[in-house]
C-alpha cells in the first residue's frame, strides 16, 4: 500500500479512538473540578475523591456491583465450562436445539431479558406467598417468610443467566480443537476420567475459559438494563445510582468513582498485556 494511504488510515483510526475516548476523558477531567458544574472548569481539587469515601450510597453500590459481577463470573465460568463439556459429549440432535436456547439471552434485547425475568420473579414470589401462608398455617414447627422481594439474589440469578452463554461459547471451540487422543492417552496411562479432565483437558481449554470469564465480567460490569429490572429496590448497582441521579444532577463523586475504576482496569490490562508480550518474546527467543 502507498505511504499516503497508510497515513490517512492512521488518521481515521485516531479519529475513531478520539470519538471513543473523548467522553471518558471529559469524565475524568471533571472529577478534579473544584465546583459542581460539569462544563465549567473552576480549578483543581481532590475533594470529590475524599467525599466519595464517606458516601454510603455510592460505596454500597460499588460493592454491590463488584460483588455481583465477581460472583456471577465465578459461578457462570464454572457452570458454563461444565455445561460445555456436557454439550460437547452430546449427540448433535440434542446439542443443536440446546445451543439455540443458549444463544437466546445473547441475541434477545436486554430489555426483553430483564422484563421477562422480572415477570418470572414476581410470579414466583406470588406463588411462594400462597405456599408459605398455607405451610405456616398448617404447622407450627418453623415459619417461612411469606413476602419475598427482588434484591441481590434475583440480581445474581439474572447476571449468571446472561453470563453463562458467553462462557459456553468460548469453551466449546477449545474442546473441539483439542486432540481427543490426549484423553485416551491419559486414561491408558492410568488416569481416571476425572483425573484426565483436571490434568489434561482443563489446561488445554484454559484459554477459552479465561476469555469467557473476562467477557462475562465485562458484560456484568457494563450491564444496566437487566440489573434495573431484576434488582428491585433491594439492591442497586453503580449504574442504577447514576440513572437515579440523572433525573436531578449527577454528583462529581460519580466522576471520581468511575475514574478510579477506569484507571484500575487500565493498569491491570497494561500489566497483563506487557507480561504476555514478554512471555511471547521469551518463547520466540528460545525457538531461535
Amino acid at each position: 500500500m502507498k505511504k499516503g494511504g497508510i497515513f490517512l488510515n492512521r488518521v481515521f483510526m485516531a479519529l475513531v479512538f478520539l470519538f471513543l475516548y473523548a467522553p471518558i476523558f471529559v469524565l475524568i477531567v471533571f472529577s478534579f473540578n473544584d465546583s459542581k458544574s460539569r462544563t465549567v472548569w473552576n480549578g483543581f481539587t481532590l475533594r470529590w475523591y475524599v467525599e466519595l469515601l464517606q458516601d454510603r450510597q455510592i460505596m454500597n453500590a460499588l460493592s454491590t456491583t463488584l460483588l455481583v459481577s465477581l460472583l456471577a463470573t465465578v459461578i457462570a465460568t464454572a457452570a458454563g465450562t461444565m455445561a460445555a463439556v456436557g454439550f460437547f459429549n452430546m449427540k448433535k440432535r440434542w446439542r443443536s436445539p440446546l445451543l439455540a436456547i443458549n444463544s437466546i439471552p445473547m441475541t434477545n434485547a436486554d430489555i426483553v431479558t430483564g422484563v421477562s425475568l422480572c415477570l418470572l420473579f414476581v410470579a414466583f414470589f406470588g406463588g411462594w406467598e400462597t405456599f408459605a401462608r398455607w405451610l405456616n398455617g398448617a404447622q407450627s414447627l418453623f415459619h417461612l417468610p411469606a413476602r419475598l422481594h427482588m434484591g441481590f439474589g434475583t440480581l445474581l440469578i439474572a447476571h449468571v443467566t446472561f453470563n453463562i452463554p458467553y462462557v459456553l461459547l468460548n469453551v466449546m471451540p477449545k474442546l473441539r480443537q483439542m486432540d481427543k487422543n490426549l484423553i485416551d492417552a491419559a486414561q491408558d496411562l492410568g488416569c481416571t476420567w476425572m483425573q484426565a479432565f483436571w490434568k489434561v483437558v482443563l489446561p488445554e481449554i484454559k484459554p477459552g475459559i479465561v476469555s469467557g470469564a473476562l467477557i462475562a465480567f465485562t458484560m456484568s460490569v457494563d450491564d444496566f438494563i437487566i440489573s434495573y429490572f431484576t434488582a428491585g429496590s433491594g439492591a442497586s448497582t453503580l449504574a442504577m445510582v447514576v440513572y437515579g441521579m440523572t433525573k436531578l444532577r449527577i454528583s462529581p463523586k460519580i466522576n471520581a468513582i468511575s475514574s478510579l475504576l477506569f484507571i484500575t482496569v487500565l493498569t491491570l490490562l497494561v500489566i497483563v498485556n506487557v507480561r504476555e508480550a514478554r512471555q511471547e518474546k521469551q518463547i520466540a527467543q528460545r525457538r531461535l
Binding site: 467522553p23 471518558i24 471529559v26 469524565l27 465485562t218 460490569v221 457494563d222 444496566f224 453503580l238 449504574a239 447514576v242 440513572y243 440523572t246 449527577i250 460519580i254 468511575s258 475504576l261 477506569f262 482496569v265
Partner: peptide
Amino acid sequence: MWMNFLLRTYS
C-alpha cells in the same frame, strides 16, 4: 466498556 455505558452516555 469497562466504564459503565450510562456514565459514558452521561458524559
